[in-house]
Design a protein around this nucleic acid. Structure first.
Lengths: 241, 241
DNA sequence: CGCCGCATTGACGTTCGTCAAGTCTAGTGG
DNA sequence: CCACTAGACTTGACGAACGTCAATGCGGCG
């Protein structure tokens, strides 16, 4: 066996703490490894699944970056989230055995395919796994609550500031810089997520740059003044007062 | 035993089909009855739970009508949903063992208290229940996806039309009229849910009434032309074209 | 080198929010 | 029974924020 063929298992995956329950014993960890049926590579621009596809599995992102979106027949669509390594994707499919949104890779990616039958089977035996699955779904519900708040009652600057802070925070949890990031998505995709047009995103980036809060060069963003960003998010009342 | 003291159990609850899994055998049904620890009455205006409360149980609504909302420290808040009989409330609390939103009764209500520990325990044994719990959480995720689409890319008329159609559809599933409904919430609450101000809700109601699509008398709404409402939702492109 | 997709910027229009005045309704108490 | 009140709702006038349209810039890739 050459080093390149080392078996990648949850038990030795560096994303373990992000996507697996803690506190499993040796034996349980081995069994959880069996949840991952296969791995699958997706090239940038390709779909992991589409609206209408039959639902079989959840996917844990090993590498890469995804967006999920829903589209209406009349061509409108809305990005519902951006997902990165260690996050779970596909929960929308459980209710009706069909996916109700599209998942598109924004860069070359690899996912662990976890057949949902197997997850259910094993989580009947391993309490910690059962609890973990529930928490992951609940977390997604809470996340979407937050997005609804953003979309429902915040101005463009607040939305973009919150978006940037959320991104760096998640990247930081994965060992990346707290102040520098490379956007994997276009202005249009950010806009779709935040309920704004791409021109508004562009203008707001420019305004933040003018104010010395960030530095923007295409998709490279450096956060110069994170406190100011947080201020925009929290004290979005009385900007002019 | 007088007729008034008949024990209310899931197995003979008329909401069974809305909130319980189908296809259980006699024995399983009896066990599921045990999930409901107690019932609890909430008077109009009172909280079922609040942001920060410790999470112990999910609640099945037996009667009444709720709103859930999240609030920020600076006083802003956003209604994240309206819940009616047969629906499950409290899923937000699972992830962190604390509730992250408020649930407020919009009319006198009664809920079945289902300790989450018991749900988890029993769903390890009864596969259908396990599946059901997963579906309920997934449904909530999909519902929120839909709300995000509404909030992110739709005009006021579309939002309100979609809201009304959703409400009557859910009421119809509970045996109420397809064309007539009584709103349990204020214009302000509708607005908060739809990311609009109460004046905009009021104006849009008036416009629909002028167009002969609905009849509005305070909180009583009669839908005269449901097809037109659906048209507004679906063909919201090219209204002026 | 030139093309193409993405991004920026400006001018203008639309939609919705804000502020304010006024109306309706249900509930309360004389 | 009616007057009074408080809260919810309606409506109008105006302005701000964001969308739309269009021109231009920039960078990567064949």
């Amino acid at each position: 066996m050459t080093p390149t063929s080392i078996k990648v298992a949850c038990s030795n995956c560096n994303l373990r703490e992000l996507c697996m329950p803690l506190g499993l014993n040796e034996r349980e960890l081995e069994r959880v490894d069996e949840v991952v049926a296969t791995r699958r590579k997706i090239t940038r621009g390709d779909h992991l699944f589409r609206n209408g596809d039959s639902f079989n599995a959840l996917y844990a992102i090993r590498t890469g970056f995804f967006k999920t979106r829903i589209s209406t027949e009349d061509g409108r669509d809305q990005v519902t989230g951006f997902q990165m390594a260690g996050e779970i994707i596909g929960l929308d499919g459980i209710v009706s055995d069909r996916h109700t949104c599209d998942a598109v890779a924004l860069e070359d990616a690899e996912v662990c395919v976890m057949p949902f039958e197997r997850i259910e089977e094993l989580s009947r035996e391993i309490t910690a796994l059962q609890r973990h699955v529930h928490k992951i779904m609940s977390r997604e519900i809470v996340r979407e609550n937050g997005v609804m708040l953003l979309l429902g009652s915040m101005r463009a600057e607040v939305r973009l500031a919150a978006f940037l802070l959320n991104l760096v925070q998640r990247l930081h949890a994965r060992g990346f810089s707290q102040s520098e990031l490379v956007l994997r998505m276009t202005r249009e995709e950010i806009g779709s997520f935040l309920g704004l047009k791409l021109e508004t995103i562009s203008r707001t980036f420019s305004k933040f740059a003018d104010d010395g809060i960030i530095e923007v060069k295409q998709r490279h963003v450096r956060i110069l003044n994170p406190d100011e960003l947080k201020l925009i998010v929290n004290a979005q009342t009385c900007q002019p007062c």
